[in-house]
Design a protein around this nucleic acid. Structure first.
Length: 606
DNA sequence: GTAGGGTTAG
């Protein structure tokens, strides 16, 4: 057999007018080889003798049944030239299993008298691609010196995309284009879908631009992927515009495009568009499906419109839709967020009654709800039940329990769970640490909190604002403002954007310690950044200023307070007025005049 | 042989 051309370019040039040959065996299915493959082989091979077939059958049996065949095959079949490419093809047909053939070929290539064979490589590579064995195809390509046909490479690109290896797919895709091969629409679409799934909209737009540049016209699938990309980019209106355009051209995308648009408009609270889309779907005979309603219910639950979500869920059942496990889980979760545990429990039993088995998601949602209302005993029961049913404990399930225990003053138990996570090999994430840190802070165990904080930093976890909020609050409350400020510094150095109320805690802490001047500086910094301090922060500062006879400053703060729209509690107002009266009655009148004016103005605004 | 799904904090 002739040596295969070494470069892709040569290969392509010799084939470019014969697309049908480039993708030679489109009918090879799964791991096997069917008639289509035979057809392909017949165009390339001499007719086989019966004896070759018989021998291949026998070798195939040996390979299947004898685990250590590699050591005995040569001596078992001394009269047969196992290196003959014709024999390989015959064996391939008999084995009907690409992975076994691959193993045989790799064994061949480890022998001394081996000569690489282009056809065998083609057959194996195409077989791997057809079997969607993307990783095996990739390692075959790197371990064997062989250049697949352009059509095979295209199929390989699609295989990589489906496998989620979008980066690798793009590399091969680029290679194809560099060779001047314009991929099929199917391949473009596959790459677009892969990028959408990977939420890589940057790649989507780049690919689409290239696609347009190469003169390939998209189809309704292309549009579907672009609409999804717009939705991922939070550019839902553009996606909607594109939808209207294709509808005008007489094409109707599949539900997934509608569903993503609906979900996006729900997020933007653009409910008239949601309703319009539902109407379009019905008019175009694309009946809204369980996914459509699930997106709506989920988004309503997220947007604190859970009553509305529950109403839709019940309507659906009345109209004959059968909610599935995910739908039930979504609704149970929504009800649990509302603390409607009774309704959640009813749904739980309803789904079980219908034969839908709760899974780890359902359990976690329900356990979360039980924790929220403080029914920790039942939460634990359900947790054990979940484990007994074979669902593994995960970071999420542990976090849910730890958080629940901490919220209800059982931090020690939560800490035990936390330690067990390490023993069981369950990863702790920032939510695990934050929950426990907050639990300890709530119980005044600041040292334990600080230790955990140090531990998570040491483990290389990225802290969040919530990591620092509770410890800073507790330290300020305990009068240790200096350590609180150290934590603040650490947070700043790590680029963590603090929660607004963290500054409130520090101002209040400073005020309580009598460091009012510094408190004033922090307040000024907040106002400069347009952050809204809490009412209590102003009040505490005014009280302290007033007690320290810094009345001008107290009035200045009062001024800010009113300009933001707060009003002053009567007792603080009274003590301030008393102070002012002690000092200078004329001054009092002027100031109060101003204050009252502003207070009235402020109450009108708010 | 179709494509889209769900659970933990702030």
């Amino acid at each position: 057999m002739a040596r295969p051309p070494q470069s892709l370019k040569t290969l392509f040039l010799s084939h470019q007018n014969h697309r049908s040959i480039q993708n030679p065996n489109p009918q090879i299915r799964n791991l096997g080889l069917s008639n289509g493959g035979e057809e392909f082989l017949q165009t390339h091979q001499q007719p086989k003798t019966q004896s070759l077939t018989q021998i291949a059958k026998e070798v195939s049996r040996v390979i299947r049944t004898q685990p250590r065949w590699e050591q005995t095959l040569l001596s078992d079949f001394p009269s047969i030239n196992l290196f003959d490419p014709n024999f390989f093809i015959e064996l391939w047909k008999q084995q009907n299993n690409v992975l076994l053939s691959l193993r045989f070929y790799l064994w061949l290539s480890s022998q001394r008298s081996f000569v690489p064979d282009k056809l065998a490589c083609d057959v194996i590579f195409d077989g791997l691609v057809e079997a969607k064995a993307a990783n095996a195809a990739k390692s075959f390509l790197t371990s064997v010196d062989f250049t697949p046909q352009p059509g095979s490479l295209e199929a390989y690109v699609r295989c990589l995309c489906e496998n989620g290896s979008i980066e690798e797919a793009l590399k091969v895709f680029d290679e194809l284009q560099k060779l001047g091969i314009c991929p099929l629409l199917e391949t473009w679409n596959s790459a677009l879908l892969g990028s959408v799934r990977a939420r890589r909209t940057d790649v989507v737009w780049k690919l689409y631009e290239e696609m347009m540049g190469s003169g390939v016209a998209g189809d309704v699938d292309t549009v579907e992927y672009l609409i999804q990309a717009f939705c991922i980019d939070n550019n839902v209106s553009k996606g909607f515009g594109l939808l209207r355009q294709v509808l005008e051209d007489g094409f109707v995308p599949r539900n997934v495009a509608f569903n993503k648009l609906i979900s996006g408009f729900c997020k933007d609270r653009y409910y008239s568009r949601v309703s319009a889309l539902l109407h379009i779907m019905i008019a175009k005979n694309q009946r809204p499906d369980i996914f459509t309603y699930q997106e709506i219910i989920r988004e309503l639950c997220k947007r604190r419109m859970r009553h509305e979500g529950f109403r839709i869920f019940n309507d659906l059942k009345d109209r004959g839709y059968a909610p599935d496990r995910v739908m039930y889980t979504t609704m149970i979760h929504g009800l649990c967020k509302m603390k409607w545990i009774g309704e959640a429990r009813k749904l739980w039993f309803e789904m079980v009654h219908k034969g839908i088995v709760p899974n780890e998601y359902t359990y976690n949602a329900f356990i979360y709800g039980l924790c929220r209302i403080g029914n920790l005993e039942e939460a634990k029961e359900r947790y054990n039940e979940m484990c007994c049913k074979g669902y593994k404990e995960t970071t999420v399930s542990c976090n849910t329990m730890i958080r629940g225990l901490c919220l209800h003053g059982r931090t020690e138990e939560a800490h035990v769970l936390f330690q067990e996570m390490a023993e069981k090999g369950i990863a702790r994430d920032i939510i695990t640490y934050n929950s426990l840190i907050q639990g300890f802070c709530k119980e005044g165990k600041i040292d334990e909190s600080i230790n955990l904080l140090a531990e998570l930093l040491e483990k290389g976890l990225q802290p969040s604002a919530a990591t620092y909020t509770a410890p800073i609050e507790k330290l300020c409350e305990m009068g240790d403002v200096d350590e609180a400020k150290e934590l603040w510094e650490d947070m700043q150095n790590r680029g963590v954007e603090p929660a607004v109320r963290t500054r409130d805690f520090i101002i209040t802490g400073l005020s309580n310690k009598g460091y009012v001047a510094e408190g004033m500086e922090w307040l000024a910094a907040m106002l400069r950044r347009n952050l809204k301090p809490q009412k209590q922060t102003f009040e505490r500062l005014i009280q302290c200023l007033s007690q320290g006879d810094k009345l001008d400053e107290a009035i200045l703060v009062l001024d800010y307070m009113f300009s933001i729209g707060y009003t002053l509690r009567e007792c603080i107002c009274r003590s301030l007025v008393d102070k002012l009266c002690e000092q200078n009655s004329d001054h009092v009148e002027t100031c109060l005049g101003g204050i009252l004016q502003k207070d009235t103005a402020a109450s009108e605004v708010f």
